[in-house]
Nucleic acid binder design. Structure first.
Lengths: 239, 239
DNA sequence: GCCCAGAAGTCATCTGATGACTTTCACGGT
DNA sequence: ACCGTGAAAGTCATCAGATGACTTCTGGGC
């Protein structure tokens, strides 16, 4: 096992076994190097790995702390990488998103309060009022995030936020067809919010699913034609 | 921006803009250090971060290569950290799993071939025949993985495999009640496989959902009582 | 009691050197 | 001409030391 792996697994084991609990400060680099038997450089690489994964958090001058280890903490790490995926691989993500958005919409329909509903409709109003695509995209995000929040599962809300962020990169509303797409999108939002306000989980799930499917169709239709060339596996001769 | 962040975002940008494509070898450390304006140590920390996230893959002596950037590649990185979550935070993950397992079961019911069905039932037979809890757990995993594979979405299959791996850590079958739980679990599997064989998506979804919910109940009932103390937010005096 | 300066602790970064592993390629044998 | 062998180059892996930056604690002065 390499030095970095040794440090990585050693640290992970300390956290997994409870020797280092959520929020706790881990020993300084010097001590860990001695205990794990690696140099500071290797230890620091392992620390950076765990930090990228949302497990620990170094603070300059203070120390390195274990995160709260909530599911959101580790799932949030996906946001750093999901936007690197090529569009072709994204359709599978959309299928997942469709299923989960439908679920949170149904949950929201069952749990929502009058105040939640007011918030949703005020977001829709603001969305329809603005002409700035960037602001519309931001409000769209907040609308769906609010539904996910009302759904009652922060982990699921985080996961969906990550998926949505990936889609937003494409800025579909800035296309020539943007205004028409936005009108259709606004209609979808009203249908969805109404179903939630009616406490109708089935209608809400259906509306959410249809909305995501619609977005997916737009992306496929208007985005640069996905390169259909098969992936070149090897940069060399036959690697 | 710190040196490591500069290197991290620089590398991520190169991949995101297509300057470095899937499978391609990235420039050697020396060149990247000069281009990004950081030292080798900082660059290496950034490389390790991206490697932990499944985006690149260093190969000792050969070079560092961009991964294929399939959704599975980046989602698989969760398997390194999901097992660190405390049980209390896991219930939210179970809700997600329940929804997604139901979906893949329905998809599998719609798509399965006779050979798929034979595979599923042979796995069930093997599961019922063994008395080794570890082997039973392994076969259980393969059974569900096969359903997810037939479901046709590799990304979703990977995500569910990650979630399941987390549950397997608890080894519920090694408890005193293990044999009885396994009998019930085997029954669930037969119901699920039969629904899939009948090409009945609704029944398959229901069976999958019920099976996951059952597993969740077992964990809650038999696992060490979750510490209900509220999380200490601050690492200071009351840490 | 409050504020501020200094000291201590800790992470961040750079530099240089050495080792380990892979790939390439020239060489010689067949 | 083909093939295996071994040397050499290229690349990542690891260690050690030194310095800087930032945070936190501590004690003195007011």
């Amino acid at each position: 096992m390499s030095a970095v792996e040794k440090a990585f697994h050693g640290l992970r084991h300390m956290i997994g076994t409870g020797r280092l609990g959520p929020g706790e400060r881990i020993p300084p680099e010097g001590e860990l190097c001695e205990e794990l038997g690696v140099s500071r450089g290797s230890l620091r690489e392992a620390v950076r790995m765990l930090a990228a994964l949302g497990v620990i958090e170094p603070r300059h001058g203070s120390g390195t702390y274990v995160s709260q280890l909530r599911p959101e903490d580790v799932i949030g790490s996906l946001s750093l990488t999901l936007e690197l995926l090529p569009l072709s691989g994204l359709l599978e993500v959309y299928e997942i998103r469709r299923v989960l958005e439908a679920h949170v919409a149904a949950q929201a329909a069952a749990r929502c309060t009058p105040e939640n509903i007011r918030t949703l409709f005020s977001l829709i109003d603001a969305m329809e009022a603005t002409s700035d695509p960037a602001e519309a995209s931001e409000l769209d995000h907040r609308f769906h995030a609010e539904i996910a929040r009302v759904g009652g599962n922060p982990t699921l809300a985080t996961l969906l936020a990550v998926f949505r962020a990936r889609s937003r990169k494409y800025q579909v509303f800035t296309l020539p067809e943007g205004p028409e797409l936005r009108r259709k999108s606004d209609d979808d939002h009203r249908v969805l919010a109404t179903a939630i306000a009616d406490h109708d989980p089935v209608a809400a799930a259906g509306a959410a699913q249809a909305h995501v499917a619609q977005t997916e169709r737009w992306l496929r239709a208007f985005m640069p034609p996905v390169e259909e060339v098969e992936r070149v596996e090897a940069p060399g001769s036959a690697d």
